[in-house]
């Protein structure tokens, strides 16, 4: 495992920690899209179905369990916690699941390497992860006074994707049989989706102002 991959995973983990701190610490999920969180849970479930059949390393297995556990916890808090659910911006979080899930499913069925349930669902998870952040970005545009934790959460998630691209470039040049066009294309698309957010994040940081995304 190279340093980019490890740093990427740590950013991903940190983004989840920041989100959980926000939700449980200040008992608020204001500005957080439940739709994005549920899509991530679906991504993890469909991707990690091989958790007990395809052992790679203890690190991978533990991380998969952590991602499954924490994303379930986040969805649970936002949906069912007596206090936290009251802070969810349901009326603003209007992105349609089907708009993201249906194309991902069609593409997975059309491009899967082999047609086994596990492989098609894995391919589906790659497509879905690429676009799962969209409800969150739309909700951010609609949120006035985005708090620091929410801005940092999205920033850390975007950093994780950027670092994975550096990891792929590194592996491309150091490993002979590392050719993953599907994963790469989706990864690049996913990172491009963050570009607009990054622009305004750095702008607000540079000017020492609160983050605001123009509608």
């Amino acid at each position: 495992m190279n340093v980019f991959r490890l740093a990427g995973d740590m950013m991903h983990l940190l983004s989840i920690v920041v989100l959980l701190l926000k939700i449980t610490g200040i008992k608020s999920c204001r500005g957080i899209s439940l739709k994005t969180q549920e899509l991530y849970l679906l991504v993890f479930i469909t991707r990690y179905l091989d958790i007990f059949t395809n052992f790679v390393s203890l690190y991978n297995t533990v991380m998969k369990l952590v991602f499954l556990g924490t994303s379930s916890a986040i969805v649970y808090y936002m949906r069912y916690d007596r206090i936290i659910k009251l802070t969810y911006d349901k009326e603003q979080d209007t992105f349609k699941y089907l708009l993201l899930v249906a194309p991902s499913a069609v593409l997975a069925l059309a491009t899967s390497h082999v047609y086994t349930v596990l492989e098609v669902l894995w391919t589906f998870s790659i497509y879905l992860e690429a676009v799962a952040i969209m409800p969150q970005l739309v909700l951010l545009q609609r949120t006035q006074n985005i708090d620091n934790l929410t801005g940092n959460y999205v920033f850390l998630l975007g950093s994780y994707r950027g670092l994975y691209i550096l990891n792929w470039i590194y592996r491309f040049f150091t490993e002979k049989h590392y050719r993953q066009w599907l994963v790469w294309t989706c990864g690049v698309v996913q990172t491009i989706i963050y570009c607009d957010f990054f622009y305004y994040y750095f702008l607000s940081w540079q000017n020492n102002e609160k983050l605001a995304l123009p509608a």
Binding site: R5, H12, V56, Q180
Partner: peptide, 10 residues
């Protein structure tokens, strides 16, 4: 169809 991907990443 694309080549089988290495599933050693998260």
């Amino acid at each position: 169809a694309p080549a089988a991907a290495l599933k050693d990443e998260l």
